[in-house]
Design a protein around this nucleic acid. Structure first.
Lengths: 138, 138
DNA sequence: TTGATATCCTACCATTTTAGTAGGGGAAAG
DNA sequence: CTTTCCCCTACTAAAATGGTAGGATATCAA
């Protein structure tokens, strides 16, 4: 399951996507509108910034805004930044790979299934973007 | 990601699947062969038993064995018993559903994507069984 | 019927992760 | 040079994870 933090991230990003092109948005505004604890949100937005999804501006008239168009930010990227691996096993993860002990990867049956699972999941999460989630009714 | 406990469960079940039809297998044997901490494994096998996947026999000649054929135990079931929900969000889970606050499910874009993701994942995990993972090379 | 064998059950515990909070520092605008 | 607002470090409570300990209970077999 995705952490609460990740769900907050999606909500915040949706809000920023809706305001894309409209200049910086205050943390406090997002916090209020999307009901996300302010200081926690501060943290989340900063991580997203470090991951190059957001940009920020300090001082008056400052705030956060999307660095890329909502169509160019896919859900897999967001999940990886805030939540971590998408694969169900470390030995199957593309971005967080870790070898598993006591297991021959060549013949491991679980690994094979989890690889397939990862692939179909990624096919969706990498294709769907912030644009898709704010225009879901279409 | 699946917990270590879930991975232990899969390893133990694979062993029991390989020994299917050969009578009860000792916890201590599985523990030794699959390098799983004994008391922790005890716990896991008991949960699987309560979920009707295993049967057990006490006393001499006792142990654990699969209640159903390896072809009838699918991976989704095992994951749900030991790990919990398969969906990425509670509001999208079939077996562990929980309503999310501040979200209209009818129009929630994230929910829509996560529903699709759940469906493709389940399609695989419900189809693949213990038989598949012990005969992966085929 | 008693002892050995093996699962069952309850409770505990250390470590890590999650979900925050607190408070000051530092850049930018005016 | 002050106000606004992001940036950064540190702390903390609660829950989840990954186990351990030890006795209760059922079964078999001599």
């Amino acid at each position: 399951m995705l952490s609460k933090k990740t769900r907050y991230a999606f909500r915040a990003l949706s809000y920023l996507a809706e305001n894309y092109g409209g200049g910086p948005v205050l943390i406090s505004e997002i916090s209020k509108e999307k009901k996300i604890p302010l200081k926690f949100l501060e943290n989340i937005l900063n991580e997203l910034k470090k991951a190059n999804l957001l940009e920020s501006k300090k001082g008056k008239g400052g705030g956060y805004f999307l660095k890329l168009s909502p169509k160019k930010i896919n859900l897999a990227t967001v999940i990886r930044v805030i939540n971590g691996p998408i694969a169900l096993l470390p030995c199957v993860s593309l971005n967080f790979y870790e070898k598993c002990e006591d297991c021959d990867e060549e013949i491991c049956g679980i690994r094979k299934v989890m690889t397939i699972t990862r692939d179909v999941t990624l096919k969706i999460l990498e294709k769907k973007t912030l644009y898709n989630i704010i225009h879901a009714s279409v």
